[in-house]
Simulated scan of single mutants.
Amino acid sequence: MAKKLKKSEKLDLILSELSKLRAEINALSKRQPERNVRSSPKKAAAPARKTAKPAAKKVSAASRKPASVPRRPVLVASPEAPKSAAG
């Protein structure tokens, strides 16, 4: 019968397998460009062109929208008027 592994031992086993797989992937990825170069040579990339950015529009004070007026009338508390002597 196989020995039952503890959690830390399982983790160590998984991490070691993962590192082996990473090394294998790195080795394969290094070999991959060599195959492509042999089968079809790469063309030189065209130099990147700089495009001129459009000038920022200047907004004058006259062309701005005026401050918006509230759509509903707002009740404004007025100061109390002096009472007239009617009595």
Score class of each variant (00 low, 15 high):
Ala52Glu: 15
Val76Ala: 13
Ala67Tyr: 03
Lys57Val: 09
Leu13Phe: 06
Lys57Gly: 02
Lys65Thr: 04
Lys57Ala: 12
Arg49Thr: 15
Arg49Pro: 02
Lys83Phe: 01
Ala86Leu: 06
Pro54Leu: 04
Leu18Ile: 06
Arg72Glu: 12
Arg72Val: 11
Arg35Asp: 07
Leu75Asn: 08
Arg38Leu: 15
Lys20Gln: 12
Ala52Pro: 05
Lys58Ala: 09
Val74Gly: 03
Arg64Met: 10
Ser16Thr: 10
Pro79Met: 01
Ser39Glu: 12
Ile14Tyr: 08
Ala2Asp: 08
Pro70Val: 06
Ala27Trp: 05
Ser78Pro: 07
Pro41Ser: 14
Ala23Lys: 12
Ser84Asp: 09
Ser60Arg: 03
Ala56Lys: 12
Lys7Met: 03
Arg38Glu: 14
Lys57Pro: 10
Ala52Trp: 05
Leu13Ala: 10
Ser60Asn: 07
Arg49Ala: 15
Ala48Gln: 11
Lys6Tyr: 03
Pro54Val: 04
Val59Asn: 03
Ser78Met: 11
Ala45Glu: 15
Gln32Tyr: 15
Val74Phe: 02
Leu5Tyr: 01
Pro33Ala: 06
Leu15Phe: 04
Ala85Glu: 08
Lys3Ile: 02
Ser19Cys: 02
Ala67Lys: 11
Leu5Ser: 00
Met1Asn: 01
Lys57Thr: 08
Pro82Lys: 12
Ser29Lys: 13
Arg71His: 05
Lys65Phe: 02
Lys4Trp: 01
Leu21Cys: 08
Leu28Gly: 06
Ser63Val: 08
Glu34Arg: 10
Ala77Arg: 14
Leu11Val: 00
Ser19Gly: 00
Leu15Cys: 07
Val76Cys: 05
Ala44Met: 13
Glu80Ile: 06
Ala81Trp: 01
Gln32His: 13
Ser29Asp: 15
Ala77Tyr: 05
Leu11Phe: 00
Glu17His: 05
Ala48Pro: 05
Lys42Asp: 10
Lys10Gly: 00
Ala46Tyr: 07
Ser60Trp: 02
Leu21Gly: 04
Val69Pro: 03
Leu28Ile: 13
Glu34Cys: 04
Ser40Met: 10
Leu13Val: 01
Ser39Arg: 11
Lys20Ala: 13
Val59Tyr: 08
Lys58Val: 11
Pro70Ser: 09
Pro73Phe: 11
Met1Trp: 03
Lys4Phe: 02
Pro70Thr: 04
Lys20Ser: 14
Ser8Asp: 09
Asp12Val: 01
Ala61Val: 11
Lys30Gln: 14
Glu34Asp: 11
Ala86Gln: 07
Ser84Arg: 10
Val37Arg: 12
Glu24Pro: 01
Lys10Trp: 02
Lys50Tyr: 14
Val69Trp: 02
Met1Ser: 08
Gln32Lys: 10
Lys7Pro: 05
Ala2Ser: 07
Leu15Asn: 10
Met1Leu: 05
Ala48Trp: 08
Pro33His: 07
Lys53Tyr: 00
Val76Tyr: 07
Gly87Lys: 14
Ala52Gly: 07
Leu18Glu: 10
Lys43Pro: 12
Pro41Arg: 15
Leu13Asp: 04
